[in-house]
């Protein structure tokens, strides 16, 4: 502190100023440095605001700690010829309490904030929606949903000659449990949700539109409407990830899973398999095309195969 004393600015003041500069830097970095891809779902802006907070806090902590370290290494380096030790200070209880309390408060804040974000993304809702509870009408409806989805994908795979039973549905007596990913929609918007079945297999995503019986290697969805993706894996674990949607859900054999999202920005975005699934894992990619609502209807009309009795059947079952 000799240097500081020489220019006669109190240490406390200098520390305060440095701290303020640090906080401002962190906030500025969080606000202005963008590391994320374009946002294209209703989830994404919520996610990005969490990212911004974490990025700001992280920058403040990192720059602060590294600054302190580098300052110590320069200021307190051993000069040639020095042979004495530093001060024999073994600890300081108030300091210890301070640097236990501050991280605890920061972590608590971050935890509560991210919980709030998670709830806004629909993460907590799936507890009521998809967990057991036969008395819950909602769960029942979803059970019905899952059932139809499993049946649909089994019939789809039957044509391919694959007869592997999907875990829960192999037991005919019980209604399959449906695992909820995050982003399970509100009850209100659910009625008009676009329902799509996704079958993940080595090494492709196959999308099936139960209402129109379209089978596609690409996912086409309308902007501004909730999409309910009923996912199932044929062989090993895959993961459905759209970076621009900030959404990822493992697709696990034996666990039919529902993931829902609302795309907001028309365009084409990559679908990436994010769980090691074999040699061609890196090549297991697809595209999600987000259409304007009109264009989506046009796409549906263009691609709907000529109707057959079975199609009409499967078209009516899943509607709750």
């Amino acid at each position: 502190m000799i240097v500081l004393a020489a220019v006669a600015i109190p240490t406390a003041l200098v520390t305060l100023l440095i701290g303020m500069a640090l906080v401002l830097t962190g906030l500025w970095v969080g606000e202005n440095v963008s590391l994320l891809p374009q946002d294209a779902s209703s989830n994404a802006p919520v996610y990005d605001s969490l990212f911004q907070v974490l990025f700001s806090i992280g920058t403040i902590l990192f720059v602060g700690i590294v600054g302190l370290l580098v300052f110590s290494l320069i200021r307190f380096r051993r000069r040639p010829g020095e042979s004495l030790d530093g001060a024999a200070i073994e600890g300081n209880l108030p300091l210890e309490i301070l640097w236990t309390a501050i991280p605890a408060v920061v972590v608590l804040f971050v935890g509560i904030y991210s919980y709030d974000i998670y709830e806004r993304m629909g993460g907590m809702a799936s507890l009521n929606h998809h967990d057991l509870g036969p008395q819950s009408e909602l769960a029942h409806r979803h059970g019905g949903h899952g059932d139809a989805m499993v049946m649909a994908s089994i019939s789809a795979s039957d044509s391919g000659g694959d007869t592997t039973p999907a875990g829960p549905s192999s037991d005919p007596g019980s209604r399959p449990r449906v695992w909820g990913g995050i982003g399970v929609p509100d009850q209100a918007v659910e009625a008009e949700a676009v329902s799509v079945d996704l079958t993940a297999m080595q090494f492709a995503f196959i999308f099936h539109y139960p209402d129109t019986n379209i089978i596609s290697g690409e996912l086409h969805v309308p902007a501004g409407r909730t999409v309910e993706l009923h996912m199932e894996a044929r062989d090993v674990i895959h993961a459905f990830w759209v970076p621009q949607f900030r959404l990822k859900q493992d697709v696990i054999p034996g666990q039919p899973t529902v993931l829902s999202f609302t795309a907001t920005r028309p365009g084409s975005y990559p679908i990436v398999c994010a769980e090691l699934c074999g040699p061609y894992h890196g090549g297991m990619r697809s595209t999600v095309v987000v259409h304007e609502p009109d264009a989506y209807e046009a796409w549906l009309r263009q691609n709907t195969p000529t109707a057959s009795p079975t199609v009409a059947n499967s078209g009516t079952t899943p509607t709750a």
Binding site: V46, Y47, L50, F51, L54, G58, V110, G111, S114, I117, Y118, M121, G123, I182, A239, W241, P243, R246, L247, K248, Q249, A274, E275
Partner: peptide, 13 residues
Amino acid sequence: ALAQVPFDIHVHD
């Protein structure tokens, strides 16, 4: 950051 579920869901794996 990774401990936060919403953050992790994007960058997991």
